[in-house]
Design a binder for these strands. Structure first.
Lengths: 230, 230
DNA sequence: ACAAAAGTGTTAATCTTACACCCATGG
DNA sequence: CCATGGGTGTAAGATTAACACTTTTGT
């Protein structure tokens, strides 16, 4: 009941997802420079400062450790088992973040790539602490959530060809999707705006119309009781 | 990055839901004896001990403060804004718990009723700290979750008449449900066992068959890819 | 015998699924 | 002209939603 002798530390961690058509869904990891778990890969994160909100702490740590700015951020789960850090009791509030495809490409090309790096969610390296557990929870969450919330768009560019959206869903749901049924359903929701642009095909093939997610319209429709579901 | 000057305290809180046919869905609150918010109602909870898991802390605090044992417990959300407690920085990992109807009735009758009490979720008193926010998140969660997870059964007795289940769903979803369609759908899931018992009617009316939730069968079917959804 | 609650089927409408051919472009 | 990827409609099957009368009990 008394709090005076409590010495628990509070940290935040962020599982950042990125996507590209070619590489699929990836997470951003950093390589640890010091023990414990020296040289292992870990989810970016760190201690919360006095007077700093949890979300601000996440954004600050991501900026410091990877230089990235995320597009979408939500709390995932709090991991607090004694013993999850061998040095001391640390509870960590894990977040779940999405970056747009453009940002994803950008970090890939940057020179910091030695200590911050993307890994495809099917080819994860050894991870420090209980970070594999955290990642599993995050992957489960994104898989479940993409089905009933329009978060997929946060991973694409602002303007995207329809096939990218479809490919993202196939990747995350891990099954084939019928192109005709999928596009009919998506368009019927009324939250995609067709643009005048066309993708310049890489290689052969017919160029595709580009679409844009209409966030306002989505908010509106959601308020009216529509529910997104693929 | 350095943790040495961090003085954040870690607490857990539990939103406990109970249900009875007559009073609907209620939450368990305790009355504060000391400032701040003296005499206000609050969600039960308290500080996490060194070396104690978060879930153990919740169960201990519930036992100490209300004498109740919960049937279902899941992590809800972590509230950590600076300023949510006027005295010091406290982050609180909120949990979400369900007790069976029998337990619900029991506490109601107990003598501790001065400082622990059930409140219908439509008639909440003034709450301490940000506990109203926590409650709102919890209520949203139970409403959403009851639709795709069989958590409703955790609020009923082990053996229950079908009408109770239906009434619980109507209460939480806040709309009428067609008796025939609902029972057909529920029974089709194959997770309810019919018993030989019959309810003794309180007052008039035909006695109803009693049912039991078959947890094993549910686990089994879930593994095989069935998905619960009302 | 009547009031109250439980039990039970059918039909129309909607939504979901499966399926295949033509079109625009680059090489 | 051919290879590649984009674009589009229809029909059968499954699911959901709407709807009312009979049965059993207590009073």
């Amino acid at each position: 009941m008394t709090s005076s002798e409590q010495h628990i530390k509070v940290a935040v961690d962020a599982v950042v997802f990125g996507y590209s058509k070619h590489e699929g869904v990836s997470v951003l990891l950093i390589q640890r420079k010091y023990p414990p778990f020296q040289n292992s890969w870990a989810i970016p994160g760190g201690f919360v400062l006095e007077g700093e909100s949890l979300e601000a702490a996440v954004r600050r740590e991501l900026q410091e450790e990877t230089g990235i700015e995320v597009n979408y951020l939500e709390q995932l789960y709090t991991f607090g088992d004694p013993g999850r850090d061998p040095r001391q009791r640390i509870i960590s509030i894990a977040y779940f973040a999405l970056v747009q495809s453009a940002q994803f490409q950008q970090l890939k090309a940057s020179t910091d790539a030695e200590h911050a790096q993307w890994f495809g969610i099917k080819q994860l390296p050894e991870l420090a602490f209980d970070h594999l557990d955290i990642l599993k929870v995050a992957i489960e969450r994104i898989r479940a959530k993409i089905r009933y919330q329009p978060i997929g768009f946060e991973l694409l560019d602002k303007v995207f060809p329809f096939a990218d959206l479809e490919h993202l869903y196939m990747t995350l749901l891990d099954r084939d999707i019928d192109r005709r049924n999928f596009s009919r359903k998506m368009l019927a929701l009324g939250i995609l705006d067709e643009t005048n642009e066309y993708a310049k095909p890489e290689g052969k093939g017919r160029p595709s119309k580009m679409y844009r997610f209409n966030e306002q319209r989505y908010q509106q429709l959601e308020k009216e009781g529509m529910n997104f579901e693929v």
